[in-house]
Simulated assay, not measured.
Amino acid sequence: MGYRFGLDHFALLVRDVERSTAFYRNVMGFSPIERSGSAGVQWLEIGGGDAIHLIQGDFGATHVTKDTHVAVSTADFDAFVRHLNEIGVEFTDWPGNPGQIGVHRNGFQQIYVQDPDGYWIEINDHRPPVGA
């Protein structure tokens, strides 16, 4: 078929959109996208035109595991790890060892953090943004 895709956005169901927005702004450094729209919804720019949509709603049936995670890549991996340490946000490697940086079998570094609703986010230096 040969279709080519790029990530536009991903959406997460959250319990409290303001609390989740604060996490993604202050911990991850994502920027709010100004828009008119529904209450309980916030869009944030990840970088390169990609976005996350936070949607507040009934979280009751949501089941979160580390196997279902979102991964973002940065050229400033070491600086990001320092940032997490400075603000006291815990991270782990894949097996769950606190404060440990993992090395993927393909040689890139990776860590995992959890947002306020327990979603896992992998941060790695696998494919840093173009121009980084």
Score class of each variant (00 low, 15 high):
V41E: 02
G118I: 10
F80P: 04
Y119K: 08
D58V: 13
A79F: 08
Q110L: 09
N124H: 01
F10R: 10
G118A: 10
G48K: 08
S31E: 07
R19I: 03
Y3M: 11
A61F: 15
I33L: 11
F91H: 06
D67I: 11
D115Y: 01
G96M: 05
S38T: 15
I101L: 03
A75C: 10
D16L: 13
W120D: 02
Q56M: 07
A61T: 15
L12V: 00
I123M: 00
T65S: 12
Q114T: 12
L54G: 05
P95Q: 07
F23K: 01
L44H: 05
I52N: 00
V72Q: 01
I33C: 06
T92N: 02
G47I: 10
M28L: 13
G40R: 12
N124F: 00
I87C: 06
G48Y: 05
S20N: 01
V130K: 14
F108I: 06
A51M: 12
D8N: 10
E18Q: 13
W94R: 07
P129V: 13
R82N: 02
F30K: 01
L12M: 02
E90Q: 09
V70M: 06
G40K: 10
D50A: 14
G6D: 14
Q114K: 15
G37N: 10
G118W: 13
R82S: 05
S31R: 11
E45T: 15
D16A: 10
A75T: 12
I87V: 11
V70K: 05
M28E: 06
G107S: 02
V27G: 01
G102W: 02
V130E: 13
E34Q: 08
F23D: 02
G99D: 03
W120S: 04
G47V: 12
V64D: 01
S36D: 09
N26L: 05
Q110E: 13
F77R: 09
L54A: 08
G40P: 14
G131H: 14
V41G: 04
R82C: 01
D16V: 07
L54E: 09
V130A: 14
S36R: 10
V14P: 00
Y3N: 09
V113C: 01
F108V: 08
D76P: 10
W120G: 01
R82I: 00
F77E: 05
T74G: 03
V72E: 00
A79R: 09
F5W: 04
Q56F: 10
N124K: 03
R25K: 12
I101D: 03
S36P: 09
I123G: 00
E122T: 06
E122W: 08
A79Y: 05
I121C: 03
D125F: 02
D125L: 07
H69E: 07
G2K: 08
Q42P: 01
I55R: 10
G99S: 04
N26E: 11
H126I: 04
K66E: 14
D117P: 01
P129Q: 14
G6M: 13
F91V: 05
H83C: 08
A132I: 09
G102E: 00
